[in-house]
Design a protein around this nucleic acid. Structure first.
Lengths: 155, 155
DNA sequence: TGCAATTAGTTACGAATGAAACTAATATAG
DNA sequence: CTATATTAGTTTCATTCGTAACTAATTGCA
């Protein structure tokens, strides 16, 4: 990236990878959320929790946080709204009564089945002009960026 | 993406492009911001405004909003904090007294010169394992995704 | 055992955010 | 001209968000 600006004094926002990713990602997330938020009265963090529980039920709040890269407070809030709305069910583990065990309710499953295709169709449209090769390439580059990010941030 | 899940019923978050971009991008932005926020008492939106003014001075608030993909309220707030801190200067255009003309102050320039290398070094680290080919590829794929996003959202 | 440290999750509170209403200046239509 | 519509930017208000403090349950170690 920034091949145009090797000079460490010059920052061209339009070439700056973190900036580009941020703008792109925010626009995409917003577009998808527009497809379900109003219609299902469902915020993005709530949908993330539902998506992960639809994929794998009986996770704890902490596990949900790990998988969605949300922080535990955000998960706690989303969970409590989803419980109020009757979209998930919660019980607590016998062997550790702090640990919650979360799963979609029947109602939650219904919404999950409705929203999932909206999300996937959006992704499909986004990638509709991409060849299989390009998709694989993109996948690989994102995996690599992700690994690089993890190294770069902490150790 | 989601090559694993062509089935429109099944959403694998870990394969879902919008989700992956969001997690990656948020982590990257956070890491960079950690490098300057506390040290320079500078929030991310404030830095974005400074970055664009450092690159091209004498923009109006609206032009800053367009170039940073921030909304005008966010720009207004960032501008007013930057004015308070003496990091930018504002006057108003003679031919249209509503339109602001913004530029970094001397102090702002100093900060700009300090923060820019932090941002660029982070980007460089992120891409340090990428060959030139891979960088070009990534650049092209992001350009394409961006175009696709624009089409997909509105018309 | 029993007390300190850790862990799961929630609550409280201040800061950040976004939508909508507002103000002031300019452009446009009659 | 003058009234209406539009545009630039700000303010307000309600919501969202993140950090830190808190509660409750569990673990570890003396």
């Amino acid at each position: 990236m920034s091949e145009h600006s090797k000079d460490p004094e010059t920052l061209l926002l339009a070439d700056f990878l973190p900036y580009r990713l941020s703008v792109l990602s925010n626009r995409i997330s917003r577009s998808i959320a527009d497809g379900y938020e109003e219609r299902f009265q469902l915020t993005l963090p709530e949908w993330r929790v539902m998506a992960v529980l639809g994929e794998q039920p009986d996770l704890s709040a902490g596990q949900v946080a790990d998988r969605t890269a949300m922080d535990k407070v955000a998960v706690s809030r989303a969970v409590s709204k989803l419980l109020d709305a009757g979209r998930i069910e919660r019980h607590f583990a016998n062997e550790d009564k702090r640990r919650s065990v979360l799963a979609l309710s029947e109602d939650g499953h219904k919404i999950y089945r409705d929203v999932t295709p909206i999300a996937l169709e959006y992704e499909a449209k986004l990638l509709e002009e991409f060849s299989d090769d390009e998709k694989r390439l993109l996948d690989g580059l994102l995996v690599k960026l992700n690994a690089s990010q993890l190294e770069t941030s902490d150790g």
